[in-house]
Design a protein around this nucleic acid. Structure first.
Ligand SMILES: [Mn+2]
Ligand SMILES: [Mn+2]
Ligand SMILES: [Zn+2]
Ligand SMILES: [Zn+2]
Lengths: 140, 140
DNA sequence: TTGTTTTTGCAAATCATTTGCATTTGGTAA
DNA sequence: TTACCAAATGCAAATGATTTGCAAAAACAA
């Protein structure tokens, strides 16, 4: 069973209907090594699917987000980017010049448990991102 | 010398003119214990200064950001929030129910230096935020 | 005080994202 | 297979945050 069928099953298990537009959105996300904005996804698809609307992409990404199929990230300031949730919890290191993105293992496990004890908060989620210059970009 | 005069000097040192609207924006930020959106700041001022425009608030916050007077944060999804940069580098713990905000010491020093060695990146900046339920909110 | 430069007020534009509604579609039960 | 109904989509228009163009006003150096 291929990756796509795995995601189809995951959606069906959550009672989410398997539509053409959901399939192609997931195909695009699967094919990408980096988080994508709704616009990014739409741009890759509008040629082959002229009837597809950006609002449909947004609606589905939001539904995926509610159902923990994708995760939304704010890597820059302006627009959300989305990536499939594949079980490997991670963060991102971003080159501010060429926009290269590296996944990072999460260093916050112990910090969160200490935090819980110190503050009395129930910790639910977190975001972390690191900005820098990749080896290529730092030498102009 | 009061806090305000300190910030005035900081702006003047960077060659930023000290205008009435810059003063009142900084006064609002100084008086707040939490990061504020442009709208938040505008709302607190429009009564006393009917001519003040939201675009002026935005223009100044952006100029402050470029000059490292304020820092922009994306605590939720939609709007930017701003806080004065006072030298104490920190992050935020946010209650997703009542919106309470606690400052957090940064736990990423060693992580960043390891990261630099592992990836060859020059690390320039980072963001971290933790979401949870405060002691009050977790008991409904 | 004057002159130059920057900032502001104001209105309109832009950009990401959402929403209303009529129509189409996916899934299911007959 | 067919018929049915809830849910999803196409489409257009709305929304909300943020930006921009331009003439008038204000800051500040000389
Ligand atoms: Mn990732
Ligand atoms: Mn803070
Ligand atoms: Zn780079
Ligand atoms: Zn709370």
């Amino acid at each position: 069973m291929g990756d796509l069928e795995l995601w189809e099953q995951k959606l069906r298990d959550k009672g989410i209907r398997w539509t053409r537009q959901r399939r192609i959105i997931i195909e695009v996300l699967l094919a990408s090594t980096r988080p994508l904005s709704a616009q990014d996804i739409f741009a890759k698809l509008e040629g082959d699917y002229p009837k597809l609307r950006l609002s449909t992409v947004y609606r589905n990404l939001n539904s995926f987000k509610d159902n923990k199929i994708v995760r939304a990230l704010n890597l820059n300031g302006n627009e959300q980017k989305f990536e499939l949730i594949n079980g490997h919890h991670h963060h991102h290191l971003i080159c501010i010049k060429c926009d290269d993105i590296l996944p990072l293992d999460c260093p916050l496990k112990e910090f969160e448990s200490k935090l819980k004890d110190d503050t009395g908060y129930t910790i639910l989620d977190h975001r972390m991102k690191i900005y820098g210059l990749c080896p290529n970009c730092k030498n102009h």
